[in-house]
Computed example of a mutant assay.
Amino acid sequence: MISMPKDLPDDPVLLKQLLEQMLSERESDRGKIVHLEEENALLRQRLFGRKSEQTADPTTPQMALFNEAESVAESVGETVEEEVVAPTKRRGKRKPLPADLPRIEVIHELPDHELTCACGCRKHSIGEEISEQLEIVPMQIRVIKHVRKVYACRGCETVLVTADKPAQLIEKSMASPSVLAILLTTKYVDGLPLHRFEKVLGRHGVNIPRQTLARWVIQCGEHLQPLLNLMRDRLLESRVIHCDETRVQVLKEPDREPSSQSWMWVQTGGPPNQPVILFGYSTSRAQEVPSRLLEGYRGYLMTDDYAGYNALGAQSGVERLGCWAHARRKFVEAQKVQPKGKTGRADIALNL
């Protein structure tokens, strides 16, 4: 109901204007209430909901591409809790072990006293059952001792000659190529920090401080720079490049507070069967960084709506593309605040 004032004007025109103003104010208040209710629903979803985007048809392959963990959660505003029944998982079929792994055959025979049958005859083999078991040999650490022979002439006292040894990746270092290979693999492929790899070596009685391990990593990076340059050349030849930046925090960085935010700029491109993924570290999120990383690029650039890519996208020959996954989240938010059981434009967009 509309609360009417006590003193109403006698003029019909003024009375009509007053009623229209009151109706307009009521509609405005109703719109504010709806807006606040939607904001409250989204806030509850982000605080208490599951961090996944659900679609009308979750089996659709294209929809599954956008189910990101950072997306808006499902509504939790319902008062009735639905009973959740865990689906019964069927036990999967065991996959065979890789055929290229070396095999050690262990033959199991019956003990001699079981080879005599109850009738007195000797049992003989008519077949066999084969099963395979995976075995892992623990990491073996050994020392390669380089002995360089020194030669001299007994007839004349010429300069001594010492035999050469193979060139080393890091000269005057105790690290062999195999040590450096496993160091880089555990750090960058397995995500094992250097202080944990230091403990792994310590269990084998080898004490190498993490500062030394870090120096080896840096020196390996210098040797790998030519390969990185070739990868960047291949990246810039791509027809489409995806680029995104993410926050990282670096401790004990010179002249910076430990709480300072830094940025890792990730670029990916290349052919589907040979993708190129490059990481570029920077203390800045300014637009100069992507312009420097992708200097000279001509093609399609896929990014989010961050303004730091505007300068790069405005360059001649660069066509900037918008990220559908980011755009889709807004339709998901709109879908979550729709009245229950209603279908709106957000559903139409998500179905597309």
Score class of each variant (00 low, 15 high):
I277G: 01
E53P: 04
H195R: 07
G120I: 11
R50V: 14
N229A: 03
D100H: 11
S176P: 02
Y300F: 14
G92E: 10
L228R: 08
Q21G: 09
L8K: 09
K145D: 06
E237K: 15
Q261T: 14
V217E: 01
M231H: 05
D190F: 09
Y297E: 06
E68V: 15
V318T: 04
K145G: 06
E38V: 10
L224M: 14
G49H: 06
P209Y: 00
T283D: 10
L14D: 08
A41E: 11
L251I: 08
E53L: 09
D233Y: 03
G344H: 01
L183Q: 06
A69T: 11
M63V: 10
S260I: 04
P177Q: 01
F66D: 06
F279S: 02
V337H: 00
G221I: 13
V200N: 08
E105Y: 13
S238H: 03
D190G: 03
L18S: 04
E257H: 12
P138S: 02
K342C: 00
L236W: 06
L293P: 06
E83R: 03
V276E: 03
K32G: 08
H326Q: 01
S131M: 02
E68W: 13
E74L: 14
S52Q: 13
V179S: 04
I170F: 00
L23N: 01
R46D: 15
P98G: 04
I130G: 00
A311K: 10
H113A: 09
L36P: 07
P275R: 02
K32F: 08
R91D: 10
I208S: 01
P290M: 12
Q17P: 05
F331C: 05
V206I: 14
Y297W: 08
P96S: 02
A73R: 15
E27P: 02
E198D: 05
V179K: 01
D57N: 02
V13N: 07
E83N: 04
P5V: 11
E114W: 13
H195Y: 15
T212M: 02
T55S: 03
R94H: 07
D164H: 14
V289Y: 01
S24Q: 13
G344V: 01
S52E: 13
S131E: 10
D347H: 12
P258W: 06
E39G: 11
S24K: 13
A64N: 11
H146Q: 12
L36S: 12
K172Q: 05
C117S: 11
K123D: 05
P61F: 11
E333Y: 12
L213C: 00
A163C: 10
E253F: 11
G155Q: 13
Q335I: 04
V332T: 12
D244V: 02
T283Q: 08
R91M: 06
D255L: 11
I136H: 06
A214I: 11
G313N: 05
K145L: 12
G191A: 02
K16E: 03
E198H: 08
C121W: 14
S3D: 14
E53A: 09
